[in-house]
Design a protein around this nucleic acid. Structure first.
Length: 422
DNA sequence: TCTGGGGTCCTAGGACCC
DNA sequence: TCTGGGGTCCTAGGACCC
């Protein structure tokens, strides 16, 4: 059996841990630039707010009902996620982190000694006690069914946070009641196709013959069908190395100045290089893209991107930044108000398989690698960006994202740690 | 005034080979 | 008048996820 542990409105729950007065109140966490709602509590949902809503369009609701807003604070959420995962890992022999707020737990063998539902309720309680994060759990033979279970567990109090779908009767009942569009793997397009084919519930889909499914859908649809019928076939095992690494941001203000654009691209390139070294990889393809604000119909629209192939795979911030800036120079067009830039590293390989190149122009690679290691160590110890390339510019530039409502880095910065008055 | 970021997998079709 | 068959590899774009 597989359990899916899902943190309830995770980003909001983390903020509530450090602002306990917000319990039972409508809370929203916003995307970068305080643009859209990315997480919200049931209380906020009840006011008609939805994930993805641009917050400036909902100002009236926010003001009238006193909805508490937070800017996104990924460092804090990542630190909290780690704590939750540590507890989950210690509870079962094998687990997989699926996303920042979800983990799959493999329960094989535990059923000999425990009632699985009771056991997982114990885990839920432990997570709540140690981290104050509420979680919902679904247990089933497949991941897709476990996810459905976790949604029921979240929705109905009677489950006490854990819903197990472990027999045919429960499976059919769950599939008949569940919303087709909420099934893992069924997105907008597949939903439209299923509806067109006359299918309204997950049960109707699951009850179709395999040959029918194979003739109308390709591999992903077929897999979902099997999972709904209790045949496990989706592999979510974690990859050691990402195949692409991307850092991109929308700006707080429109940018026309080339130096500012250059500073943004250099910062994103440095961030990518840092992530790259973090997973012990090298890249040999650096892509840069720029775009104007697609919502501003009154301004000239422009977006472009280009890739530079490097002669040698590298993880050197200086080399990657140079490549990125040379691409920017080519795709930059004067007279455009830019809203967003980004850097993508591709063609990623393992750092241990380094190939020598006869025509390599960088002669001191080992020393340069050592330099990067030292910079990473210093930045780790004294704070992000303590040492950076001059071209990245200084803190708080015009292009930086807005984050008006960011809470403190309570778990990672001594200067921002909470003080409690007793 | 204000509209997110970072990924994966799959497939069709093009380019190329003998 | 008639113009093959069978592969592989790569890539862009679509669909989906959180």
């Amino acid at each position: 059996m597989i359990a899916l542990v899902d943190c309830n409105s995770f980003f909001c729950s983390v903020e509530k841990v450090f602002h306990p007065g917000l319990n039972g109140k409508p809370v929203c966490v916003l995307s970068c630039n305080d643009g859209c709602i990315v997480a919200l509590t049931p209380e906020a949902k009840a006011l008609g707010l939805r994930r993805g809503d641009p917050i400036f369009k909902k100002k009236d609701i926010v003001q009238h009902y006193g909805v508490k807003l937070f800017s996104t604070n990924m460092y804090l959420y990542a630190a909290m996620s780690k704590r939750v995962n540590n507890i989950l890992r210690s509870a079962v022999p094998h687990s997989e982190v699926y996303s920042i707020d979800e983990s799959f737990l493999y329960l094989d063998g535990l059923e000999k000694y425990h009632d699985l539902e009771d056991y997982m309720r114990g885990v839920v309680e432990k997570v709540r006690l140690y981290t104050d994060i509420p979680v919902s759990v679904g247990i089933a033979h497949t991941k897709t069914l476990a996810k459905i279970g976790s949604k029921f567990a979240k929705q109905y109090k009677g489950y006490h946070s854990v819903c197990m779908i472990d027999n045919e009767e429960k499976r059919r009942k769950a599939l008949a009641l569940f919303d087709l569009s909420d099934v893992w793997g069924i997105g907008k397009q597949t939903l439209a196709k299923l509806n067109y084919l006359g299918i309204r519930t997950p049960l109707e889909f699951a009850d179709k013959k395999e040959s029918w499914v194979r003739s109308h859908f390709s591999k992903p649809g077929w897999q979902t069908w099997k999972e709904l019928n209790g045949i496990s076939c989706i592999d979510t095992s974690e990859v050691a190395q990402r195949q692409t690494i991307c850092t991109s941001r929308s700006f707080g203000n429109l940018v026309t100045d080339y130096d500012a654009l250059q500073a943004s691209v250099a910062s994103f390139a440095a961030s990518c290089a840092n992530k790259l070294r973090g997973q012990h990889s090298l890249t040999s393809a650096v892509t840069v893209f720029v775009s104007s604000n697609r919502f501003r119909e009154d301004l000239t629209q422009y977006s472009n991107g280009q890739t530079r192939i490097l002669p040698m795979p590298t993880s050197d911030t200086i080399e990657i930044t140079q490549a990125a800036l040379s691409v920017l120079k080519e795709i930059y067009r004067e007279g455009i108000s830019y809203k967003k830039t980004g850097v993508i590293l591709g063609d990623i390989t393992d750092a241990s398989y380094i190939q020598q190149n006869l025509f390599d122009e960088v002669k001191n690679r080992p020393e340069r690698m050592q330099l990067m290691k030292s910079i990473d160590a210093l930045n780790h110890r004294f704070g992000l960006r303590k040492i950076h390339l001059a071209v990245e510019g200084e803190e708080k530039q015009a292009w930086h994202a807005k984050s008006e409502f960011r809470s403190g880095n309570y778990l990672s910065d001594l200067k921002e740690i909470l003080t409690i008055q007793i």
